[in-house]
Design a protein around this nucleic acid. Structure first.
Lengths: 224, 224
DNA sequence: GGATGTGAATGCATTCACAGCA
DNA sequence: TGCTGTGAATGCATTCACATCC
């Protein structure tokens, strides 16, 4: 089976397996069964086994999966056994918060440059780095062969910046602007839109007939 | 067909249709076909029609969908035709950035309280609001009948805070901590984990045999 | 002609269930 | 006995293709 036709949802779950396993490292647990791993994440045991089996035989019948072993296999599969250089475009509140958020940089990613279109921000320090002007983007990305970018700019400029990134050689974009960024095939985009996610929650509440807007407080509380 | 068994991916796409349509409002466009709407988001026309048809007949044969009409239908379906009260837990960098990010609060959501466990943060101003201590969470959420929460706390406390939120009556949580938050059935969780998303990009790059880590710059650049 | 809405057909992902190994 | 890996069976989502309406 070729890598290309492994189900996308399966690849996505791999990241959660890895996260869960890494949390386990601080405990004294050495092995884990597909059942245990699945239950902690809300999946079935068959699902876990099938997902992992797409990539090889990592388990030990009668034993389960060895935690260390599976972690390193998953890192290899996901490509985070090597370090990826990442640039950030947009040094505003969100950009800063994202980079500062603890655990953002789980091993495997290193921020190598930060850009902003606002000249008043250029030159400001940003962790170990200084904010660079957009005019430096092309040459920096090219020179350092950067392949990944985080896009935290206002929605109006998101598409234009994405175009520049792709032109400079970036092949994966993590986009925080609320727009569907168009990129040529061969380039991947992952998007995070808070409004979209809240809407999904709102929809799910409607299913339970949970009432929105706070009416004047009474005393009862109901749930499905 | 009952609301409960509409495909999750379809509901998710609804949010993107809505986002796209809202962007269209600033133009003079009055109607749009399933083909046009789909193309702008990378879906087929049949997909768009099927998704919308799960909820009713919103289109006009020979014409397409009227933008205004479809927007209000989608808001109704997603539950954002009413205002949902939202609380934020965690007034750190991320929490502040999330709330400040323009467009975060697309109509339909209103932040009514902010909590933080760090006493030095309590009392600080946060937009129109003041940061409250965690000890106020229960009574505030209960009194205002809040059903949605944004969780931007360190991973160690995420599960405990989620438990408190659920106990207070929250039924939907948007979680930014890198952990799989367990909640009782009847409560929904949406999660955002930056490391997970970068890993997904990393995996997709591997498919194209794009090399990670910057070796000393040469002159060639390749792409699939 | 130009578009929707929708049953039928296809294709994809998950689950079952069991052979096989430690 | 306990657990994996995996073909076969099921179930879900997408796409096709066409009757229908403006």
């Amino acid at each position: 089976m070729k890598f290309e036709d492994i189900p996308t949802p399966a690849v996505h779950r791999l990241s959660f397996y890895l996260r869960q396993l890494e949390a386990l490292k601080s405990t004294d647990r050495r092995t884990i069964s597909s059942k245990q791993l699945g239950e902690s994440l809300g999946y079935t045991d068959a699902q876990v086994r099938k997902d992992l089996a797409y990539f090889g035989q990592f388990g030990h019948p009668g034993i389960g999966y060895r935690v260390d072993e599976l972690i390193s296999q998953l890192r290899k599969i996901l490509g985070t056994d090597k370090i990826w250089s990442v640039v950030l475009v947009g040094a505003g509140n969100l950009g800063r918060a994202l980079m500062a958020y603890r655990g953002f940089l789980r091993k495997g990613f290193q921020l190598v440059a930060v850009f902003d279109a606002d000249n008043s921000k250029v030159g400001q320090s940003f962790g170990d780095l200084n904010v660079l002007p957009m005019s430096d983007l092309q040459k920096t990305v090219l020179a350092q062969r950067v392949r990944l970018a985080v896009l935290a700019v206002p929605v109006e400029s998101a598409q234009a910046v994405a175009d520049q990134l792709v032109a400079a050689g970036v092949r994966g974009i993590l986009n925080f602007a609320p727009i569907s960024v168009a990129v040529p095939s061969g380039t991947a985009v992952q998007s995070v839109d808070l409004a979209v996610q809240l809407e999904q929650l709102s929809y799910q509440m409607n299913l339970d007939a949970t009432e929105p807007v706070s009416p004047p407080p009474a005393d009862a509380a109901s749930a499905g």
